[in-house]
Simulated scan of single mutants.
Amino acid sequence: MTQPVIDLRDVSRRYDDGPPALQDTSLTVRPGEAVAILGPSGSGKSTLLNLIAGLDRPDTGTITVDGVRVDQLGEAAAARYRRSKIGMVFQFFNLLDDLTVADNVALPAQLAGMARGEAHRRAAELLEVLDIDRHGRAYPGRLSGGERQRVAVARALMNRPPLILADEPTGALDTAAGDDVSRLLRDLNAEGQTLVVVTHDLALARSCTHRTVRIVDGRVAEDVSAEVAR
């Protein structure tokens, strides 16, 4: 049987003296799956994303992503892990306004040690595939929200990561741009990319994922597979 891309076992995380943000949570995601993590604010879904990304560490339990024990990584190793294993797409894009679109996309590869020329060739390929190559020399501030999110997706794909994590990827977009990004995520998954999308938007979950995991009070309350809406 194919090894999972994500394997969380009995993971718990508590902050200060409050209730657990996650409690005894287990989750498996296999290669090529598209999974939506749903839940209200404060349910633990952002904590789950941060733990998978190595931005936080659990109090108990184990986290393995593409063969890496993420819960055992130090700060420097976690940064290397994110560069090689994770592509992240954020609600507010997190692009660097003083870099061109092409430079934003190429940056993860250059940080990973790729030569500048090679990184920019790879960035140009991605910008063309995502239909934003005409904006390569522009700065992010001149682009629409939907275009900036496409740039963010291109950047996430730069190092060919086995896993894309998207945190409310349509939350800052209007309906038309949100639908565009939803189709893009669906297309990426159709090509074999593993996706985990954290969202409160059930329509987004239905349109670009085929499995929904609902988190309530730090626990998995529901895990349902369904066909992606086309």
Rank of each mutant, 00 (worst) to 15 (best):
residue 142 R to C: 08
residue 144 S to I: 09
residue 211 R to A: 03
residue 114 M to P: 06
residue 148 R to Q: 15
residue 202 L to S: 09
residue 197 V to M: 03
residue 160 R to N: 13
residue 124 A to W: 10
residue 182 S to E: 09
residue 213 V to F: 01
residue 131 D to A: 14
residue 170 T to L: 06
residue 183 R to Y: 05
residue 178 G to N: 10
residue 196 V to T: 09
residue 130 L to M: 03
residue 200 H to T: 06
residue 138 A to G: 13
residue 152 A to P: 04
residue 112 A to K: 09
residue 211 R to T: 02
residue 190 A to C: 07
residue 179 D to F: 00
residue 177 A to D: 15
residue 130 L to Q: 11
residue 162 P to L: 06
residue 125 E to V: 04
residue 118 E to N: 09
residue 215 I to P: 07
residue 137 R to D: 15
residue 131 D to Q: 13
residue 160 R to V: 13
residue 196 V to A: 08
residue 148 R to F: 04
residue 213 V to T: 02
residue 180 D to M: 04
residue 197 V to I: 14
residue 131 D to R: 13
residue 208 C to V: 05
residue 213 V to P: 10
residue 141 G to Q: 10
residue 186 R to T: 07
residue 205 A to L: 08
residue 175 T to S: 14
residue 110 Q to P: 04
residue 164 I to R: 02
residue 121 R to K: 12
residue 187 D to G: 12
residue 210 H to A: 12
residue 181 V to W: 01
residue 152 A to E: 05
residue 197 V to L: 04
residue 166 A to E: 03
residue 127 L to P: 01
residue 119 A to K: 09
residue 115 A to D: 15
residue 195 L to A: 11
residue 146 G to N: 12
residue 203 A to L: 10
residue 166 A to S: 07
residue 131 D to F: 06
residue 177 A to W: 03
residue 197 V to Q: 02
residue 203 A to I: 01
residue 124 A to N: 15
residue 143 L to W: 09
residue 152 A to F: 09
residue 194 T to L: 06
residue 161 P to C: 02
residue 195 L to S: 04
residue 195 L to H: 02
residue 159 N to A: 11
residue 174 D to I: 14
residue 114 M to D: 10
residue 114 M to N: 10
residue 139 Y to K: 11
residue 164 I to Q: 03
residue 120 H to C: 11
residue 190 A to T: 10
residue 147 E to F: 04
residue 130 L to P: 01
residue 196 V to F: 09
residue 192 G to M: 08
residue 211 R to K: 05
residue 173 L to R: 12
residue 155 R to V: 00
residue 211 R to W: 06
residue 143 L to R: 08
residue 180 D to S: 15
residue 197 V to D: 07
residue 157 L to S: 04
residue 150 R to M: 01
